[in-house]
């Protein structure tokens, strides 16, 4: 198996916690992982991304070659489009539809959604709204991970375990909320794929 995933968002949105949960799940399955992160200047509200590669074979490059990502998982709609040159012909784009507006010339959201809908395979989900329903907008990351999970070749219960491991020190309530968020995201994707 091989899952090449581009994680996308804006500095401060916490895409690295998605990567941490996935990494934990992949480690539990004894898979190989490489994960290139964005640190430094861009973390100050700029565009950030992570290349996450999971495979049952050794992985060479830390970067995903162009046109070969199985999945773009974006927590922000405009950012989902920025990495399209990486998406493979059969790849999925899974994005949150809530814009993060921190620049003056942020484009019209309808235009952005129009571009997303042009793709052959996509899931567009209001992760912020679902996250609020399960208890906190901060869980929108896990809604997104849930929405992407049908397209990642890792047993779902491993991802759930990843959440338990990563969030356990924050208490049972935080774990429950993030697990709910994950499941709700997955349900949405399965109903809308």
């Amino acid at each position: 198996m091989k899952s090449d995933i581009i994680l996308a968002g804006v500095g401060g949105q916490g895409i690295l916690s998605i990567a941490t949960v996935l990494g934990e799940a992949a480690l539990a399955e004894n898979l190989y992982i490489k994960q290139a992160e964005t640190h430094g200047m861009s973390q100050r509200g700029g565009a950030v991304y992570s290349h996450m590669r999971i495979s049952d074979q050794p992985i060479f490059s830390d970067l995903i070659p162009g046109g070969s990502a199985d999945l773009i998982l974006s927590v922000e709609p405009m950012e989902s489009l920025r990495y399209l040159p990486y998406l493979s012909e059969t790849g999925y784009l899974v994005t949150n539809i809530t814009p993060f507006v921190n620049i003056p010339e942020y484009p019209d959201i309808d235009q952005l959604m129009g571009e997303i809908r042009k793709l052959p395979r996509f899931i567009a989900i209001d992760a912020d709204a679902i996250a609020k329903e399960v208890g906190s907008s901060r869980a929108s990351n896990m809604v997104m991970l849930g929405a992407a999970s049908p397209f990642i070749d890792i047993v779902f219960s491993r991802i759930e375990n990843g959440i338990r491991t990563i969030f356990s020190r924050k208490g049972e309530e935080v774990v429950r909320m993030n697990l709910d968020a994950l499941r709700r995201g997955r349900e949405f994707a399965e109903a809308n794929r």
Partner: peptide
């Protein structure tokens, strides 16, 4: 891969 749509603008750090 697919082209980046023209509507996408840069998002520099701030």
């Amino acid at each position: 891969g697919y082209d980046i749509p023209k509507v996408v603008v840069s998002r520099p750090p701030a």
